[in-house]
Design a protein around this nucleic acid. Sequence first.
DNA 1: GATGAATGAGGGTTCATTCAT
DNA 2: TATGAATGAACCCTCATTCAT
Lengths: 207, 207, 207, 207
Amino acid sequence: MPIPLGRPANPEARAQRRAQIIKGARTCFLRKGFHAATTAEISAEAGVSVANLYQYFPTKDDLVQALIEDDLAEDLALVRLVDEAGSLREGLARIDTLLAAEPDYAEQTRLKLEIIAEAARNSQIAAVVSAADARMVAAMITLLERRQQAGEVRPEADPVVIAELILALYDGLYGRLAFSGANQARMTRAASQMIIDAFANPPHPSD
Amino acid sequence: MPIPLGRPANPEARAQRRAQIIKGARTCFLRKGFHAATTAEISAEAGVSVANLYQYFPTKDDLVQALIEDDLAEDLALVRLVDEAGSLREGLARIDTLLAAEPDYAEQTRLKLEIIAEAARNSQIAAVVSAADARMVAAMITLLERRQQAGEVRPEADPVVIAELILALYDGLYGRLAFSGANQARMTRAASQMIIDAFANPPHPSD
Amino acid sequence: MPIPLGRPANPEARAQRRAQIIKGARTCFLRKGFHAATTAEISAEAGVSVANLYQYFPTKDDLVQALIEDDLAEDLALVRLVDEAGSLREGLARIDTLLAAEPDYAEQTRLKLEIIAEAARNSQIAAVVSAADARMVAAMITLLERRQQAGEVRPEADPVVIAELILALYDGLYGRLAFSGANQARMTRAASQMIIDAFANPPHPSD
Amino acid sequence: MPIPLGRPANPEARAQRRAQIIKGARTCFLRKGFHAATTAEISAEAGVSVANLYQYFPTKDDLVQALIEDDLAEDLALVRLVDEAGSLREGLARIDTLLAAEPDYAEQTRLKLEIIAEAARNSQIAAVVSAADARMVAAMITLLERRQQAGEVRPEADPVVIAELILALYDGLYGRLAFSGANQARMTRAASQMIIDAFANPPHPSD
DNA sequence: GATGAATGAGGGTTCATTCAT
DNA sequence: TATGAATGAACCCTCATTCAT
């Protein structure tokens, strides 16, 4: 085991600075979009020099990709949140509560539009998005199958199809909320209700 | 309104060339996005010189805006299609048929993602998009109210909210179809069914 | 034959501007070398905007290559000059006279050092240099064979080898003259004499 | 000169590391040229950190200069080799033998092209090159004068001029060999022969 | 002495836009 | 009107060099 000479590498500091850059990038991408945001703006926003940014992300595209991976992980967390609840109704209610508490969630979601649009052109990003989405759809399907076995979801419904529809509904809703004047909390609840009405069995009399 | 005198220019030729440029722009924007598509590419695609393009659209942004207006008109046509059908069920079925016949509709939808993302940054475009969307929502609400009065839509449903949800569902669905491998026709039918299940009264036994 | 509309292309003006840019590039490359000379400097020297330069040479490398081709053509002209003279002695004398009249020829030759050094790394440029050099060597060989048949060059000498040596001598001489303080005209004459002494038969008594 | 006290640093280790860096630099400069080779590449090649390189050479230019001094010393050794031989013919024969044994000598010569080109722009380097060259020319002149007194070199020849020509011939030859396909050993012998034919008296019948 | 981290100053190239014919 | 030619303003990225440990 050779004794390492010189200044020792500090992985924590690196990780922190990396996150700092991604945060700055998120702000700028949100404000200007992937293409219009410049590396100079991003590094200024992150409080870093441009050259330093390039030591963490060898390419602007790499930065975009890192941010996307970071971003898509959050969506998966939402699915898990629903899954951990006792029932679909309860899970959706939690979503409603959570999103009601984050009034600028719609704002953040704008990035997803950008991401999907970008995925349509950049095959590398398309791969990242597809992979993340596949994981999310899979989690959703598992969740729905479980609820179906528990008798909460109608037996004739196809979990694969429903999963896609539910994700589409939320994607579309938050996409629209970014520019329509509709009330975010209200529309989120309405979406939950729509899902219940469309796919759930009527509640047991004992509920 | 008579053709103004003293203008030797040929309005028909102008309109035709304008459309030709917009068509080229659509191709390029679809391929590369608003920012990455260059005026050089667009004019090449349209078979026009760059300088000539600038005689029809004084700015790239103007071209984008013209294309967006052109584009948003199509969506409104879909709402009218539903409205002209005898019932919500029938209208949605027509949508299903129509979209099944255009297998690359999802592809074209990518432009809408770009448009919305752009609207979030460009206030002029935001105005255009909002206005077009407001018209569409209004048409949708009117349609739903009529169906509600006809007893087809559940009386407790709020047409304003439902309209948003339905539009969100389709937006989100076609956004997802642009990169997920799901079957477009099948998912379109499933969306129709979801709408029926969530908002419609059960069909009369006589139906 | 379709009638060309719009501003007609002007090939002469283009050729002139192209030459103008190459001239500016030569000045800058001479002053700073291929790598250190910037496109900004070159275009300033040529009295052109940077963007305009890029309409004539899509890449800095392309500009370098064009200049090299331009440059190597001159050397070939020198060989032809010797060939057109009645004898090797007469031809070399003409070279001496010509170079004596251009006191900064050594200065210009510095570019050839740069060119060869660059050829060692850039395969595209290597191809250009090799091709041009092959033409020059071939012309030299032909010349020497003719002089050999005329009895002026020693019969046992191999024109292929001599050609290389003569070119090497001049290359090396002008390379050295670029930094040594030696007298250009004198050294040029000495080189001619060396060639005569090494390869020529003694002059006929009738000469 | 006693080793200065109060300097705990290990001079041997320093010298070794210095040589290690110069070696890495030579490799990189040969591969890419002075300007295109980066300090990062050089230190990687030398197995050293960039910051460490800067503790040995405060500037990239200083590194270049050190390497050049290192390099020019070798040429002088060749002149001495000839001088130590009994005759010019014998000395040139030894050169032929030596260079025949180093088939990639031409490759290394590429650095000299780079050096001369650089000298044309960097006055500091020009001084180094001029000084080294002056030493070499002086050694060459001394050598030739001795051979002239020994009756081997023609009496009417000017050693100052011949020295320049001989150096020019070798410089040019190895410059050309770097990219022409000619055979190095054969051309080296031919150059020796050319020198003999041009400047030497015919051998004594007793030789 | 040695290393990892950071940066200011460009460098080549592109692009929306304008000018001249 | 329509085109070829031209340009200023950036943009992404690199690199020699310095700082901190």
